[in-house]
Design a binder for these strands. Structure first.
Lengths: 334, 334
DNA sequence: GAGATCTCTGTATACGTATTCATTGTATAC
DNA sequence: GTATACAATGAATACGTATACAGAGATCTC
């Protein structure tokens, strides 16, 4: 129990060379059926598992994927992480998880160089971070998931945030809303940007002006949505609908509405973005734009594995549709 | 860019032997100050990072901790994971995350043997799983976090679930409740068990009987809490308070109450367990027993690191207090 | 029946680092 | 002045695996 048995130990036990044991382990066809059977039996009896480090050092592959994420406690991110774990595991891959908030830049830079992983999944790329460029220039296979970077020569899988936001805007306009609140994020991801721009485009196309005072830029937490709602809804003439760029903010907005006594959807409609599991809870019953988490992760991991085996193929950007999911936080009242 | 530079490459560049470069890297004092400076300069210029695999193979340490968790999307687990990531990262340790639901038993067994990690943090131990025994008998340093196993010879850090539950029960009894619902979990963790037993003990000590029909056993998801609440509250004479063993179930119960038109706390009080961030949201405003996540993780990682450097010290079980946090889902009405 | 082909196995080596051992040069002691 | 300690470095090796290479039988071809 002190030292795990090595392939050499087992070779001795089976009366063959270490090379033959290794051949059995790697399913090398050039090994006699009887020999293979005998070796397999010995391996099984000894409950042997190859040393992953030695194997990785020799083959250059670790069967491990590095995942960079932020704010795991955010419902959408948790769902994304869960899905990534599920998909990687189903392919026999391990996952090392780094949190962009916690891990200092130099740690990340070191990791990118270290070849600890066969590839990276970046889920939280922002324009003011250098992580994605470090990853890409390191030559390690990398896929941007969920958040993309326009023009970056790197595989990317993103939702069609712009179109989803556009649909949400159109839905509000079609329902007759003209005084509409917009709660956006201050940070610089492509998601929040497109979810902002697409929404504005829909309103502009319909000739609906959005008042500057109806636009609030906030941080990511629930409390910020709460504060934004209080600000918007405690005005003399509050907007009749509020759209925001994440479900988490929408939950905050719903809570803020509760706090100031505004009824949803009677007094104000609320629309979020992500369609997290929680959006379907009675407490929120939130109309929201769905992100196809499963499809995004599936496609992303496929791209990554493909690139690992085929590093020189041209990069690819996959965009997946984000359908509007209508629930009780909005209601056709026209 | 194709092949990362090795210590041997840099040794040549610096005009020293590979051994000297290695000594510089490991802060070996037996190296001349000038030589060290020259080597460091070369390392820096080349932007060199040691190959983690080779280093791990030689030293037997990977600076990586394996974390086993389940249902990352559950709010409490997400918070726990986030905290674990923060603490490990602050100590320069990487984290490999496995999900007990997704990863098959044999994968886990292999991992435990592989020496891929310096130690394990198990956060979801249940009595009907064999994971913890596999980990412990493998000889790899292991700490049980959050969920413990009574009598297991293994370091453990858990909240005082029994006492927290007892306090919650006493609080309800003191407020005059006599018809109390209890929503428990069907699975076999020590957490749900103690949160059940402690609560019952408080009621028993106060001479309050708990009707069998008031006890519902469910699975973990929100929907199960929802269903349980509907069942309990749609009776002719529903209980005046419901206590449950996780916040997630409590959220479901609150939503179920909403669904059947029961007002909280006017018609029914609700108490959860965990004090997740969400419990403080207006939508729930949940009275709940706090789990000291930060302290649990901090203590657990300390124990783990201690055991890694000192494998033979006796095992230790740390129990941390779980205070009751009173919010709007209950109100003193006597 | 001799040469050729094929199947199987063992020997030797490499991955990149940390570390033991031996060696050189320098300083110290007498 | 030699003997000894010490500081600094290089050469060699080991971690455990995968694989190129070579060699030994066995089978086949004509």
């Amino acid at each position: 129990m002190s030292r795990p048995p090595t392939s050499r130990d087992l070779a001795r036990l089976a009366g063959v060379s270490q090379a033959t044991v290794s051949r059995v382990l790697t399913n090398n066809p050039k090994v006699n059926a009887e020999t293979r059977a005998r070796v397999l039996q010995v391996l099984k009896d000894a409950n042997y598992t190859p040393n992953a480090l030695a194997r990785a050092m020799k083959t250059g592959r670790t069967d491990t994927i590095g995942v960079f994420m932020t704010r795991v406690t955010s419902p959408f991110h948790a769902e994304l992480l869960d899905e990534i774990g599920r998909v990687l595991s189903s392919m026999g891959l391990h996952m090392i998880l780094w949190n962009i908030e916690h891990d200092p830049e130099e740690t990340i830079a070191a990791v990118v160089q270290q070849r600890l992983v066969d590839g990276f999944l970046l889920t939280s790329a922002t324009y003011d971070s250098t992580l994605h460029t470090m990853a890409v220039t390191s030559g390690t296979p990398t896929v941007l998931l969920h958040r993309g970077i326009d023009g970056l020569d790197c595989d990317q899988v993103v939702g069609d945030n712009w179109q989803g936001a556009y649909d949400a805007g159109q839905y509000l306009v079609d329902a007759g809303h003209t005084d509409i609140g917009l709660v956006t994020l201050t940070h610089t991801g492509n998601t929040s940007r497109d979810r902002d721009l697409g929404f504005r485009a829909a309103l502009a196309d319909a000739g609906v002006k959005i008042k500057p005072s109806n636009v609030v830029s906030v941080g990511v937490p629930h409390a910020d949505g709460h504060a934004a709602a209080e600000k918007l809804l405690s005005r003399k003439k509050p907007p009749t609908a509020i759209y925001t760029v994440t479900d988490l903010l929408a939950f905050g907005i719903l809570d803020g509405a509760r706090a100031v006594g505004a009824r949803v959807p009677d007094d104000v409609w609320v629309i979020g973005f992500d369609n997290t599991d929680m959006a379907a809870w009675e407490a929120f019953d939130l109309t929201t734009v769905e992100q196809p988490v499963h499809a995004i992760v599936e496609a992303g991991v496929d791209l990554l594995r493909d690139r690992i085996t085929n590093p020189d193929r041209p990069t690819q950007v996959v965009t997946l549709p984000c359908p509007l999911v209508i629930r009780g936080s909005t209601a056709n009242r026209r």
